[in-house]
Design a binder for these strands. Structure first.
Lengths: 246, 246
DNA sequence: GCTAGTTATGAGGAATTCATAAAGAAAATC
DNA sequence: GATTTTCTTTATGAATTCCTCATAACTAGC
């Protein structure tokens, strides 16, 4: 099977960053295209096929956030990763709420960046999940049709809200889920602000799911942004099946 | 082997609600289209194919109810879900009588909304499946064709409603069945709130089926969710041989 | 180190929902 | 039409779940 190369579009006004990403990605077998402004990027997405987009939030012209929204309208399933600066927490949240798949904070390690791209692409290519198939991540298994959760085969009793929170997080495993989205999913859109609710329930969930609730391996916190169910646990991945990165 | 995406049409004049639904639905693999008025929605249904429609009752222009009637005339089998406000009981009944498949009261959690959409689509796509093979779980055996139930071979007399409740629960053994679904199945969609009915009948069923009705082994409660017929009874399985069930 | 903002923790009380009982209304049967 | 059965309604205390709030731990910026 000769798979066609994975194509990544880089939208960033700084040539230095584009170059760094381009060379590394190319070395790893990705094909890349570049745009220095949002409009340009949109035009490319209209005329070509991409497997993922890396998009800088802060750009001249129509800016990253607007570009994101328009990209999303153009290509509902295309993985889009936003590049944000360290402390621009609001940007991260806004991007995720507007449909970005993930965010990467500058300065970033190329290695992490590539890993995130890969994981976003993998998720996008995973065929639609039939509604009733169990979601299995590590020792945790959640079966939507049954509304049942087990850890290493042992059933875990969850209350309604606990289950609904876990369900959404596991549906989006590997991605940061904003407080707002979680709250809208479980309580309704007008509860977007009630982060305290989440804290209480995440705590209960960790008690029930984690071996050491104080050092969670599954239910991770994305400070200032939300929570994230870990995508894959190194502990469970046989080491060595990924080529070393520079 | 990628199934075509499920297409949902959102008709609501509030952009915020459309946006919240759109992003979540898209993330879950649905395709969405939007209309801010009834006329617009009708035009879209004329020209495109959808698997379900979410329709706000209260809208400017021709309004939700009229839109519903016309939609129904256009597409007799298309699942249509109405968004209504909490206490507008009349709206709900009117909507169901006018051919809506379900209604969702605002404020609603996105989770609930998605679940309802899925279930409406499934209903529309699943042709009636008259199953005549007996369902056997533990000591309990239910034969749909004969409408008969036995426990350890001994016939148990059940009234009509008792039987219908048990039948539905056993059909979905191992899964939590929500009050709403159970009530809709036995009494009809407009009785979805009458949880008290269920309590009374579950009590009767437990009296007839359970050895110790106060500590049920078959008819379990999922607090705040519904009831569940246990799928396997450890007590009856001789320990040691773990044969996976089909 | 100090301060402000965020997150984690713990526990108690409010609110909802549950099981139970029992009686009135409706339907079915004779 | 009377009697039996089934269904619906209402009331009660008990149980569970959910929410609130106070405090501690942590993180970043000064």
């Amino acid at each position: 099977m000769n798979a066609p190369p994975t194509r990544v579009l880089l939208i960033d006004d700084e040539p230095a960053i584009r170059r760094a990403l381009r060379t590394t990605l190319n070395e790893l077998g990705f094909e890349t295209a570049e745009a220095s402004r949002g409009e340009e990027g949109l035009q490319l997405v209209r005329t070509q096929n991409f497997d993922a987009v890396l998009l800088d939030v802060k750009m001249p012209g129509i800016g990253g956030m607007k570009t994101l929204v328009r990209l999303r309208a153009l290509a509902p399933r295309l993985p889009i990763l936003m590049l944000t600066v360290q402390d621009a927490e609001d940007d991260k949240v806004e991007a995720l709420e507007a449909g970005a798949d993930d965010y990467i904070t500058k300065p970033f390690s190329i290695r992490e960046c590539v890993a995130r791209i890969r994981s976003a692409i993998r998720r996008a290519q995973t065929p639609e999940r039939p509604e009733n198939t169990p979601i299995v991540i590590g020792e945790i298994e959640l079966t939507p049709g049954k509304r049942a959760v087990t850890k290493s085969g042992e059933p875990i009793h969850l209350t309604r809200k606990e289950y609904e929170i876990l369900h959404y997080l596991m549906l989006h495993a590997g991605r940061a889920v904003t407080y707002g989205k979680l709250l809208a999913w479980v309580w309704g859109a007008e509860f977007r602000q009630e982060v305290e609710y989440l804290r209480t329930f995440i705590r209960q969930l960790r008690k029930k799911i984690e071996d050491d609730p104080a050092n969670p391996r599954y239910l991770l916190t994305d400070a200032y942004v939300g929570y994230r169910f870990t995508e894959c646990l190194e502990a469970f991945m046989p080491a060595g099946d990924e080529e070393p990165l520079p």
